[in-house]
């Protein structure tokens, strides 16, 4: 279900916690699985739950509680824009509108070519860098402008 590499990463996470507390690694394990699979199909959640010796429903609760997990297939590049108040005061909404126009999609939609998914995010703890967006959950792009968005999209399109 998951690659050796992913399993090794999960094992490293498990090792952070005391014996018998494997469940503590569920968040990391789901993240690692999501990076490999692109999103979290339910059979992957069930596999991860079994790997950590926890009931699948408990893993599903976690997967649905934290909003960076994707429970539906998404584009290769997920772009999450913060539109919370501090960002909104500094162009966050404008950036989001620009992305919608450029990609031709709304929030929670994926471009027909499967490249991009646009999401509205909550506070990323980087309000001083507004506007900010996240690429595929793990890379934060700060101080965005329309020009920087253009070059980001160009770079991602070329990948």
């Amino acid at each position: 279900m998951l690659s050796q590499e992913s399993l090794q990463q999960i094992d490293r996470e498990i090792a952070k916690y005391p014996p018998g507390r494997k469940q503590s690694a569920i968040m990391s394990a789901l993240r690692i699985a999501q990076v490999e699979k692109g999103w979290l199909p339910k059979d992957v959640i069930e596999f991860v739950a079994a790997y950590l010796g926890m009931p699948p429903m408990a893993a599903y609760e976690v997967a649905t509680f934290y909003n960076m997990y994707d429970l539906e297939p998404i584009g290769r590049h997920k772009i999450t824009v913060c539109t919370n108040l501090p960002c909104a005061l500094s162009g966050g909404v404008h950036v989001a509108e620009y992305l919608k126009r450029r990609l031709g999609i709304g929030f929670n939609e994926t471009t027909p070519d499967g490249r991009f998914t646009l999401k509205e995010g909550e506070c990323m703890g980087a309000c001083g860098d507004a506007p900010v967006l996240l690429h595929n959950n793990h890379h934060m792009c700060s101080f965005m402008t329309m020009d920087k968005i253009d070059s980001l999209l160009a770079e991602l399109e070329s990948q």
């Binding site: 009931p55 429903m57 599903y60 609760e61 649905t64």
Partner: peptide, 8 residues
């Protein structure tokens, strides 16, 4: 745990 409370 056959039932849980999913989402938030």
């Amino acid at each position: 745990m056959e039932l849980g409370q999913a989402h938030r």
